[in-house]
Write a protein that binds this DNA or RNA. Structure first.
Lengths: 229, 229
DNA sequence: TTCCCAGAAAATTTCAAAATTTCTAAAAAT
DNA sequence: ATTTTTAGAAATTTTGAAATTTTCTGGGAA
């Protein structure tokens, strides 16, 4: 890493990105001294940033033992998925009920952008900067789906949960990308634009269930109504 | 305030409590130097605690301008209430479906404890330490309702939202206490123990709707099913 | 060979003072 | 009388170093 003075938000953005895109492996120790040199700042600035990342769940802090990237934890992935499903089903339901024409077009645009990247992912090899683009585009897609729900706290809670989810997934062999993703995203958009609340909730569940502890076998979180069709 | 050395978690707990129980008015400036003297610690320790409180939404931070208790904001109260309703309805639904005998008894116990304090609140004057007890008991009651939902992220998200809600409410003339509270809490417990999901969601909505922007007139968040009876 | 302990090295946390910025109030100019 | 400027005061942020704690290393005993 080149030596140059970074400001606090720059350091935060850089570390956040590295934690969410597998550039910092899960469980790795984050030594203040080393980071202080890398970013050419004082130890306190590093401490400040790491505490913020800890409050967002991406970093674990232990008194007198410093910071480390949060280790892999299958149970955590299960519960993050569970909460993501809850928030996205609730948010999408509200968006479908209240969203207007602008929401529809933004959703279609986000889906098109994501689909474009996903089609490239199946062609070329995974990893590298393309994966980072995909991660950003997928978050933007899901966030746009919720953007008309008129609940800012639900949206910010979803974003925090998504980042933690991505950090857990990112070290898996496939980096969290599955070829079925594209089809599943299309199902979500289709049902949302058709204003099919039950169908959309079902599509969301189907999209995420593979990350549940039992692969979604119990069907516990499946929406109350049956899927459309 | 007496001069004595406080550790970081003690300072955090104390400031958190003061922010949530109206001992620090909304919008009040929190000067590091003053707090440093009060708690007999270094400026950095204070800064650390204030950043943490800021990440939880109770404190606002402005670059080069320091910290202040979050100001009153009716819109914020509206959206906090909206999110509380969402989380509590989802969590209570899951608890009702999965909770066992232990959950039932814990809920009954928390309700009894809360009811005991609420009966005293109508007799004696509000404010002082009794109000703090009530605030704690009410949080414990709502948290117990969600305790069997098997979603730790939903529960921690609810607690953060509750604290921010309480901070917004606390400066109102009645300190956020209404005489109808006791009846509403009873309705929530009754429907929960009867495993009446729709009824419980309705009771939750009825309990909180007075904090919505329009007093709940739009009925936007009312659960899909009609209340029981 | 394994376990335990002491000393050394490294990292984290706390502290205090310097430097930068913002706020306040008084004086000058329009 | 109102606005602008400017000097002083106050508060925040940063920096660097000291003190505490943990971790690592090597020697000695079981």
């Amino acid at each position: 890493m080149l030596k140059a003075s970074f400001s606090t938000p720059q350091i935060y953005d850089d570390l956040h990105m590295q934690l969410v895109t597998a550039q910092i492996p899960q469980g790795q120790k984050l030594r203040s001294e080393r980071l202080r040199e890398d970013y050419d700042c004082s130890a306190n600035t590093i401490r400040e940033v790491l505490f913020r990342l800890a409050s967002e769940g991406l970093v674990v802090f232990e008194e007198q033992r410093g910071f480390r990237a949060r280790p892999a934890d299958p149970e955590r992935l299960h519960y993050l998925t569970k909460f993501r499903i809850t928030l996205e089903q609730e948010g999408a339901t509200a968006s479908i009920r209240h969203g207007g024409l602008e929401w529809e077009s933004q959703l279609a645009a986000a889906h098109q952008k994501l689909g474009h990247i996903e089609s490239r992912l199946t062609e070329t090899s995974l990893g590298g900067p393309t994966l980072r683009l995909w991660s950003l585009a997928e978050l933007e897609f899901h966030d746009t789906l919720l953007s008309a729900c008129d609940s800012p706290f639900l949206r910010s809670s979803y974003r925090r949960t998504y980042d933690q989810f991505r950090q857990q997934k990112i070290m898996q062999p496939d980096y969290g990308y599955h070829s079925e993703n594209a089809v599943e995203h299309t199902a979500i958009v289709k049902t949302a634009l058709e204003r099919d609340v039950a169908g959309c909730c079902f599509a969301i569940y189907e999209h995420m269930k593979r990350n549940l502890r039992d692969g979604g076998a119990s069907g516990e979180l499946r929406p109350k109504s049956a899927p459309a069709g």
